[in-house]
């Protein structure tokens, strides 16, 4: 059965992803989503699981997350989470029919990337202040 004009999922081999920002940001939404579904959930399971298993396990988990490698992982987690969050809001805006032009895609891309930067900086400034108090 012919199915013309059917929207296609992001294709990884055909398009020149490295020369255009829109498809790169699009596939990054999926990659960050998959990362959150695999690794983000594991962080959550480990954290609340350690707390439920008792003081020793929770102390170990808190030490793991506040070690240099743990902080690096948490930094990556905040970037990935805020990217998927901000770009997800961008998709929700598109779902209403707004900003669906080439200019809209470019404009919202910069707003989204600015939001990711702003939220990441905010989270780490607040986090480091709370830690210092």
């Amino acid at each position: 059965m012919p199915t013309p004009d059917r929207p296609l999922s992001p294709h990884l081999q055909v398009y020149k992803l490295h020369t255009k920002i829109a498809p790169l940001l699009s596939i990054a939404h999926r990659l960050t989503g998959v990362a959150l579904a695999f690794l983000g959930t594991l962080f959550l399971i480990y954290w609340v699981g350690a707390a439920a298993y008792g003081p020793e396990a929770f102390a170990t988990a808190q030490a793991v997350f506040s070690s240099p490698l743990g902080l690096l992982m948490l930094f990556g987690w905040t970037v990935v989470l805020f990217y998927h969050l901000a770009n997800g809001v961008r998709h929700l805006v598109w779902d209403t029919g707004l900003e669906l032009s080439n200019e809209g895609v470019r404009r919202t891309a910069w707003v989204m990337l600015g939001s990711v930067l702003g939220l990441t900086v905010l989270a780490w400034v607040v986090g480091l202040i709370v830690l210092a108090l």
Binding site: G54, F58, L85, G88, A123, G127, V130
Partner: peptide, 29 residues
């Protein structure tokens, strides 16, 4: 679920994680 997760994820990062950043077991509990 995406709409619901906008406030929930922000709450989780800023209140649940950052709010308990140096919590011991008793404080977290």
């Amino acid at each position: 679920t995406a709409v619901a997760l906008v406030p929930l994820a922000l709450w989780f990062v800023f209140a649940a994680v950052i709010g308990n950043i140096d919590a011991d077991h008793a404080a977290f509990r």
